[in-house]
Each structure stands twice: as C-alpha cells, then as structure tokens.
C-alpha cells in the first residue's frame, strides 16, 4: 500500500511518519506538499505533527485552508483512511473533519513526555490491530492538546463510541494525574462517525522502533496496513 504524508510549512514530523511507513512498515510513501492538489494515489493519508503555518492565530487554523486539504476532505468523504497526529489532529478539528477544538493545556505548559493511552475502540483503520483495553506507552509533545467539545457533542462522541484513545495510568485506570493536558473525558484520540478519520495527540511514529525507546506506537501504524489488506 501507499502512504501519503502531507507536508505543511512548519510540519516537523513528516519525515518521521514517512520513515515509519517506508523503513519500519516496508510500504510505499510519498511526501505531499500542502500546495499540491492531488494525493498521488495514496491509500492512507497522514497529517503529521509540527506547527503548520507556525500555528499562528490558532493551531491548525490556517493549515485548514491549504490547497491539499480540499483533496484530503474529498478523500475522507470517500471513506479513505486519514490519521492526524498531534498538529494533524488539530488541523482535522479546525477543518471540521472531526468535532471539537483544542485549548491550551491545563497548567499552560508544553508537555513533552511519555504518556499511557488506553485503546477504547478497535473498529477503526488505526486501531484494528490492537486489543480493546490495551494500554500503549507513547510520547506526546504539545502545548495545545486540551481537547474540548460542548456537552451535547461529548455525549454524541461517547454514544457513537468515537473516543478511540484515553489517557490512563499504566494499568489502564482512569485517573486525573494521568491526563497530561486536561482534556475532557481524558480524550487522547477520536474518530469521525464513519470511523475512517482518526485524530490523536500522542505520536505513534515516535514509538515504533526500539532505538526510539519504545515500540507501542507500532500497533497503530500496523493497523493501517492490516486495514488496507482486509479492505
């Protein structure tokens, strides 16, 4: 299969995602500039982490209007798998592909550390290789990961099982101390109603080789290949 990794001015995890796709997963991958207007035949699209357009105004606010986003939205509409990692998640929120918004972290600090997230849903192209309740140790690095949605939207997310990942203690228990940014319902990742678009704050591409200090992110990336093979 072929990955398409979108490169915005200010993206800084694009090469990592591309490396993970080609060197770790052994798949084809192409970096796609944000001004491009086609996805070069990608079977899955990754919006990588970073600071697209400097994150001026709001995180992801301007990236949403990059020309390639029209193609990404059409791809998502066709059911194509789209993964937004960190800044990519923020872009998905601003573009309306996922509901909600990001606020500054509770405590205002940029948090760069390993966290634990529990896999809540396994019927997405990005978690189908994981077990429900599986706890993954994956790094985060963000200042604006405090997920917010109004109460009615939160209720809808929970009712539709759209919360894909939650911050938990290493044993999978929901405790407030394990929530690094104050996200409502300890949300670390969500999917759309159709379940083909997922946004997550932790970086699976930073935890997919032993040299990186952990391989728990691998299951997220391998899920994409598995989903493609069984589609």
């Amino acid at each position: 299969m072929k990955f398409g990794v979108i490169v915005f001015p200010g993206s800084n995890c694009d090469r990592d995602a591309d490396h993970a796709a080609t060197q770790v997963l052994g798949q084809a991958s192409e970096l796609i500039w944000h001004k491009d207007t086609d996805l070069k035949g990608a079977d899955a699209v990754i919006l990588p982490g970073g600071f697209a357009h400097g994150d001026y105004l709001r995180t992801g606010a301007m990236a949403r209007f990059s020309p390639i986003m029209r193609e990404v939205m059409a791809f998502a509409d066709r059911g194509g798998p789209v993964l937004g990692i960190c800044n990519g998640f923020q872009i998905l929120l601003e573009s309306g592909l996922l509901p909600g918004a990001m606020l500054r972290n509770r405590g205002l600090k940029y948090r760069c550390e390993h966290v634990h997230v529990r896999v809540e849903q396994t019927d997405t192209p990005f978690t189908c290789g994981a077990e429900a309740g599986q706890v993954l140790r994956i790094p985060i690095g963000h200042g604006e990961g405090n997920y917010f949605a109004p109460p009615d939207v939160l209720q809808m997310l929970e009712a539709n099982r759209q919360v894909v990942l939650r911050y938990t203690a290493p044993d999978g228990q929901l405790v407030d101390d394990a929530n690094p940014n104050g996200s409502v319902h300890a949300i670390a990742g969500i999917c759309n109603e159709r379940r083909n678009v997922v946004g997550m704050m932790p970086h699976p591409e930073r935890a997919c080789e032993p040299a990186l200090g952990g391989v728990d992110g691998l299951v997220i990336l391998e899920s994409i290949v598995k989903a493609f093979a069984t589609a």
Partner: peptide
C-alpha cells in the same frame, strides 16, 4: 471563517 473558532 478564520479569526474565531465557533466551537470555543
């Protein structure tokens, strides 16, 4: 369109 995010 741009200056404000109506969600928040």
């Amino acid at each position: 369109k741009l200056l404000a995010n109506p969600v928040i």
